[in-house]
Amino acid sequence: MKFGIVVNEGPYQHQASDSAYLFAKAAIESGHEVWRVFFYHDGVNNASRLTEPPQDDRNIVNRWTKLAEEHKVDLVVCVAAALRRGIKEENLAQGFRISGLGQLVESGIKCDRLVTFGD
């Protein structure tokens, strides 16, 4: 089955990004495809490569990058939400790309299920 995932909250503040990541990982381990993860609202902060968590904490941004590299997951950051919050190409983490809300709608159309994580 093909999954789309939406992340509406930023990393470290709310559990949404952790829940979304663990869901994505479990879906892949169960033999499903995670076609796209769409980062919206404060969720765009998951894509900042300037993030530096303490060493004993999980690295949420790198975890998404790794998932994208290993399983060809398309990580899309909402352009309007990103520009409002200072997320641009110049500070975008590897594996993410910036695009429009059409990519969210397309996830709903193309995927068998669209699961949202937010506040």
Partner: peptide
């Protein structure tokens, strides 16, 4: 969220859904 919802609604309509 209310404002963002409207944005997605308009895009979704443009996709003829």
């Amino acid at each position: 969220y209310a404002l963002e919802s409207l944005e997605v609604v308009l895009i979704t309509a443009a996709f003829d859904q």
